[in-house]
Deep mutational scan, measured.
Amino acid sequence: AEKTGIVNVSSSLNVREGASTSSKVIGSLSGNTKVTIVGEEGAFYKIEYKGSHSYVAKEYIKDIKDE
């Protein structure tokens, strides 16, 4: 089941290729951006990003809701 969340950062949140802080950064999301969460892996959520799937750190996503 998909969930949505809100990016909870003051500046921007790195979007990564994989579920690791050493993964390549492929983009960023600004605070209060709504994201669609399709899964989770460790400390990361797998999200829909620009037509494919990428990862963001869970600690920076708030207001998780089931869609």
Results as ranks from 00 to 15, higher is better:
54 S>L: 07
41 E>I: 09
1 A>T: 14
58 K>I: 06
46 K>V: 14
61 I>A: 01
63 D>W: 12
26 I>F: 02
20 S>A: 07
53 H>R: 05
55 Y>A: 00
48 E>Y: 11
55 Y>P: 00
22 S>I: 08
9 V>Q: 07
5 G>N: 03
40 E>H: 05
39 G>D: 06
17 E>V: 09
23 S>Q: 03
2 E>Y: 15
42 G>F: 04
67 E>R: 12
66 D>V: 14
11 S>F: 08
58 K>F: 03
50 K>V: 05
46 K>I: 15
18 G>T: 12
2 E>I: 15
53 H>K: 05
19 A>T: 06
44 F>T: 01
51 G>A: 05
10 S>P: 11
30 S>R: 14
60 Y>G: 12
44 F>V: 01
8 N>D: 10
52 S>L: 11
30 S>V: 11
39 G>K: 03
34 K>W: 09
53 H>I: 14
4 T>A: 07
17 E>P: 02
56 V>Q: 00
47 I>P: 01
10 S>Q: 12
9 V>L: 08
28 S>M: 12
38 V>I: 13
28 S>H: 14
23 S>P: 01
41 E>N: 07
17 E>H: 06
47 I>T: 01
62 K>A: 11
5 G>H: 04
67 E>C: 14
20 S>N: 09
8 N>R: 13
47 I>Q: 00
37 I>Y: 00
28 S>D: 06
4 T>G: 05
48 E>K: 13
65 K>G: 10
52 S>R: 12
44 F>H: 03
2 E>H: 15
50 K>A: 10
52 S>P: 02
19 A>D: 02
21 T>N: 14
51 G>N: 07
53 H>N: 06
42 G>R: 03
14 N>H: 12
49 Y>V: 03
3 K>Y: 09
26 I>E: 02
61 I>F: 05
31 G>W: 09
17 E>Q: 09
52 S>V: 11
28 S>K: 14
29 L>K: 01
4 T>C: 13
28 S>T: 14
32 N>D: 08
63 D>N: 09
34 K>M: 12
11 S>Y: 08
48 E>P: 03
31 G>L: 10
46 K>T: 06
4 T>E: 07
7 V>P: 03
7 V>C: 05
27 G>P: 01
32 N>I: 05
46 K>A: 07
57 A>H: 08
26 I>D: 01
5 G>D: 02
44 F>I: 00
18 G>V: 07
29 L>H: 01
58 K>D: 00
43 A>H: 09
37 I>H: 00
3 K>L: 10
44 F>G: 00
36 T>C: 11
39 G>F: 03
6 I>M: 08
25 V>Y: 04
23 S>I: 02
6 I>H: 06
9 V>E: 06
36 T>H: 11
32 N>H: 10
7 V>T: 07
27 G>W: 02
44 F>Y: 10
38 V>M: 06
31 G>S: 14
61 I>H: 01
65 K>T: 14
52 S>T: 14
66 D>I: 14
62 K>W: 10
38 V>L: 11
45 Y>K: 01
60 Y>I: 03
7 V>L: 05
17 E>L: 09
37 I>F: 00
67 E>V: 14
54 S>P: 04
32 N>L: 09
42 G>W: 03
15 V>D: 01
65 K>I: 13
66 D>P: 12
9 V>H: 11
46 K>E: 08
8 N>K: 12
31 G>F: 12
36 T>A: 07
3 K>V: 09
10 S>F: 08
8 N>T: 12
48 E>T: 08
61 I>P: 00
42 G>P: 02
22 S>T: 13
54 S>Q: 07
6 I>Q: 05
55 Y>F: 12
18 G>A: 14
62 K>I: 15
56 V>L: 04
53 H>C: 08
44 F>N: 02
24 K>P: 10
63 D>G: 08
41 E>H: 08
46 K>L: 13
6 I>C: 11
44 F>C: 04
41 E>C: 12
32 N>E: 08
54 S>A: 15
24 K>D: 06
10 S>L: 12
8 N>E: 08
20 S>K: 06
24 K>N: 08
15 V>F: 02
52 S>Q: 12
35 V>W: 02
7 V>A: 05
66 D>E: 13
1 A>Q: 12
62 K>H: 10
21 T>E: 14
65 K>L: 11
3 K>G: 06
64 I>D: 07
37 I>D: 00
67 E>Y: 10
13 L>T: 08
1 A>W: 15
32 N>V: 05
30 S>I: 12
51 G>W: 04
29 L>P: 01
31 G>D: 11
50 K>Y: 09
52 S>C: 09
61 I>Q: 00
18 G>I: 07
48 E>W: 14
10 S>Y: 07
50 K>R: 10
8 N>Y: 09
61 I>T: 01
56 V>A: 04
1 A>N: 13
4 T>P: 05
11 S>N: 12
17 E>F: 07
22 S>H: 11
37 I>A: 00
64 I>F: 09
29 L>W: 02
7 V>W: 02
21 T>C: 15
1 A>C: 15
38 V>P: 00
52 S>G: 15
10 S>M: 11
26 I>W: 02
36 T>S: 08
30 S>L: 14
66 D>K: 10
23 S>C: 07
39 G>H: 03
35 V>Q: 00
25 V>A: 05
39 G>A: 07
61 I>E: 01
55 Y>E: 00
43 A>V: 08
27 G>Q: 02
21 T>S: 13
22 S>M: 10
8 N>M: 13
41 E>P: 00
12 S>F: 12
17 E>K: 07
4 T>N: 07
50 K>N: 14
16 R>C: 08
55 Y>R: 00
38 V>C: 08
23 S>G: 05
45 Y>S: 01
31 G>I: 09
24 K>F: 05
60 Y>S: 08
10 S>R: 13
38 V>N: 03
26 I>P: 01
31 G>C: 13
1 A>G: 13
64 I>E: 07
28 S>W: 14
66 D>F: 15
45 Y>H: 03
55 Y>I: 01
44 F>D: 03
15 V>R: 01
37 I>W: 01
27 G>A: 05
2 E>A: 15
51 G>E: 06
6 I>V: 10
61 I>N: 01
25 V>R: 04
47 I>E: 01
66 D>S: 12
63 D>M: 15
12 S>Q: 12
7 V>H: 02
13 L>D: 02
18 G>R: 12
54 S>F: 15
50 K>F: 11
32 N>S: 09
22 S>G: 10
2 E>R: 15
30 S>G: 09
60 Y>T: 05
24 K>W: 04
49 Y>E: 01
32 N>A: 08
23 S>F: 05
26 I>K: 04
42 G>T: 03
50 K>C: 13
11 S>M: 10
16 R>Q: 11
47 I>R: 00
18 G>E: 12
63 D>S: 10
54 S>K: 11
6 I>G: 03
24 K>I: 07
57 A>K: 12
19 A>M: 04
30 S>D: 11
60 Y>C: 15
3 K>R: 14
45 Y>G: 02
58 K>Y: 02
21 T>L: 14
43 A>Q: 12
1 A>M: 14
64 I>G: 06
36 T>W: 13
55 Y>H: 01
67 E>A: 14
18 G>D: 08
59 E>K: 11
